[in-house]
Amino acid sequence: MKKRVLVVDDDPKHLLTTRDLLELSGYEVAVHNTPFRTTEIVQTWKPDLVLLDVNMPGLAGDRLCGLVRANGNSRNVLIMLHSSNDEESLRESARHFAADGYICKGDIAGLRRKVAAALGC
C-alpha cells in the first residue's frame, strides 16, 4: 500500500507542485489549504506524514503541530514543517514544537530525500 502524505498550506501553487512532485515519487497525497480542520482530516484520512506550512493565516503551522499531536489518535503521526522561512528559524521551530523535522521550500532534492527517509521508502 502506498504511504500517505497530507500537505497543509495556504498557497495553492505550493499545494499543486508539492502534490505532483510527491505523487511522481509514488506517494498518495492529499492537500488541505487551511490550518482549520487539519486535526480532523488527520484522524479520518490517517496520513503517515503531515507536511505543515509555518506561516498560515489563522494558525501558525508550528503551533498546529502541537494541536495535531495533542489528539490521542494521531499522537504518532510524523509531522514535518515545510516552509519558505529561512532554514535557521525553521530549525528552531521544529525543535521548539517537537516536529519530526523540517524541509525548506524550494529544496526539491531535500523534499524527496527527507520524505523518503521519514517513511522508510
Binding site: 501553487k13 505550493h14 507542485t17 519558505s84 529561512d86 521550500k105
Partner: peptide
C-alpha cells in the same frame, strides 16, 4: 522573495 522563487523552482 523566497515564496515565488520556490514556486518557480517547483514548477
Amino acid at each position: 522573495l523566497r515564496s515565488p522563487t520556490n514556486a518557480i523552482i517547483g514548477l
